[in-house]
Design a protein around this nucleic acid. Sequence first.
DNA 1: CTAACTGTAATATATCACATAGTACACCTT
DNA 2: AAGGTGTACTATGTGATATATTACAGTTAG
Lengths: 130, 130
Amino acid sequence: MINFTIKFQYGIPLYEQIVYAVKKAIVSEQLKPGDQFPSVREIARELRINPNTAQKVIAHLVREGLLEIKPGIGSVVSELGIATNAQRDKIFKDEVEKLVVECKRLSITKKEFIDAVNRNWKLDNEKGEE
Amino acid sequence: MINFTIKFQYGIPLYEQIVYAVKKAIVSEQLKPGDQFPSVREIARELRINPNTAQKVIAHLVREGLLEIKPGIGSVVSELGIATNAQRDKIFKDEVEKLVVECKRLSITKKEFIDAVNRNWKLDNEKGEE
DNA sequence: CTAACTGTAATATATCACATAGTACACCTT
DNA sequence: AAGGTGTACTATGTGATATATTACAGTTAG
């Protein structure tokens, strides 16, 4: 069984969209640590993509620490990780800056932006934690 | 004269990095509306890239409304635009969501994230406006 | 043990984005 | 007329993406 949903879009790599859908499912607790993750061949069959592409998804998720491999058995959802300094820098200095620049060039105010952040922070996680 | 600075990175398209550098320069008022923008051939020469790539930069900036073309003369920095509903949706629903998901999976708190936003909002624009 | 499942690796093919090189044309200023 | 401007076109090479197919080692269930 596939535990996450996808609506494919043009112009974005398939594997990338799937990786993101999985992240979203984990963050919103549709997928919990310890849950069995669908196999390469099952993903390929259900989503009608090539097994190589499905394998690429798993490889990415493992490298990013979201899945763990049980050889001969399959993969399992990992516990949530903690950001390294490099990851924090990438988000806080690069990613946030990009969004801020884009907002400013479109005359979007900081308040509007922060409101959107608050909205999104609660949306995927009904508990509304910090 | 080139009015913006770039430090090229691996893995990111040249034209994309240049487009972003220009956006940043405009947002931080190193480039102001009405300023003459360097020509295709000047960009290519100064940054040591192919004229076609420089042309791609200008084409992107024009399409996004950051530059205006004066035929036979060159290009000029436009006034800051106002976001369309589609642009606001893309930022508020897609881009922000992506960052929020990434933060949650790395156990970054909302407070830490909002702090980073506040920091970045002031950084490129010394006046610290809304 | 065997069959059926797991992740993983390799080869091959086709398509597209990116960056380069080079040439050409219409437009405008000096 | 000369030299600048944006723009368009062909061509080449490289890499990422996605496909198809085959193969192998590890694990489990019968």
